[in-house]
Design a protein around this nucleic acid. Structure first.
Lengths: 190, 190
DNA sequence: ACCTGAACACCGTTCAAGT
DNA sequence: ACCTGAACACCGTTCAAGT
């Protein structure tokens, strides 16, 4: 039967979950789909574009939060982190797709965070950069968190120190750093 | 004559500058050095470790800034951005090495930023996360900036909009967002 | 329109064997 | 101690040819 984009993204996502991003290759994906590698290139221009589609699948659950700008930013970011954490190497994959401009879903998130920043009173010419700064934080923090999680799920008892204790609370603290910075740069200041 | 780590890192860096990170392969590097690919594995455990050494070379010029915590953070970050921008794909390479924990130089930067955060009055258990947040911003912003720079140096007249205008001023704005957030979380508040 | 088969031009890493 | 040669097990992408 015919190969559809949906099936390709489905199988790619399960390959990601089971074996991680390093083993998500065009050839392996084709093998799993029982098609020749070239078949994938009828549906996707290249690997980057396919990974962008996987990123969008991962981010499908992230939607807007109708609330004041503080809760809106906090809510979107919490959803984003949760989505990334529910797939192996999710943060790394979405990071790469965002940097390559291949994720429509991340463009959507960027837009909503930009609106929230504008709502907070950030000058229009700085609103998008403000939103990007928030995204850099969420992606950076979560990629870190996830690599530690996966590392010691694989056996290594990595130094516990301050790190293992309540990642969610740590995540919130870092996010507040940004939110409070935004408040300082807003017209009102609150 | 004998192959030394220094020569390997030298040639790797010039390969990076001339052709970018995608063309910096172990095999190509070996060819350029007139040795067999296996020879590199006598000096480096794997590619990640070698890239970490290149990252450290790129960051050699980044040192501490003896000043109050605000100027110290601003100064270190400006140096960091400058270092990244002076090598093709510098931000991407250092990002990857930092995430993989393979850059001693980035560990040093992290330590100095952590000290600055503590100096600002951030609680000890949050100082490192604060420093990481700053680093996520600098790496994210600069990777973005650099990919745009390299994209339209390669011919494409990418939408000028708000983006091209004074990247340094934009960089400073985003950094101030963080610095001001840190000030809010400090004991003194200034 | 959609896919196969086969090729092109590569990869990172290992390791017996040489000097 | 340091390196070669050759192998192992892969890659992403293209494209004539088939259905």
């Amino acid at each position: 039967m015919q190969l559809h984009k949906r099936d390709v993204v489905d199988v790619a996502t399960s390959l990601l979950d089971d074996y991680g991003i390093a083993d998500l290759s065009m050839r392996r994906l084709a093998r799993e789909l029982n098609v020749s590698p070239g078949a994938l290139y009828w549906h996707f221009a290249n690997k980057q574009q396919l990974l962008g589609a996987v990123a969008d699948r991962i981010l499908a659950a992230v939607d807007d939060v109708p609330a004041g700008w503080r809760d809106r930013i906090a809510g979107i970011c919490a959803q984003l982190r949760d989505a990334l954490l529910s797939h192996t190497d999710g943060a790394e994959l979405v990071s790469a797709s965002f940097a390559a401009g291949q994720s429509a879903a991340m463009t959507g998130v960027l837009g909503r965070l930009t609106a929230a920043a504008a709502d907070a009173g950030v000058a229009p010419e700085h609103a998008e950069l403000t939103a990007r700064t928030v995204i850099y934080y969420v992606l950076g923090f979560t990629a870190d968190e996830q690599s530690r999680l996966q590392w010691d799920a694989a056996g290594a008892d990595v130094a516990q120190t301050v790190w293992a204790e309540d990642p969610s609370a740590r995540f919130t603290f870092g996010l507040h750093l940004l939110v409070d910075g935004i408040a300082v740069h807003s017209r009102a200041g609150t």
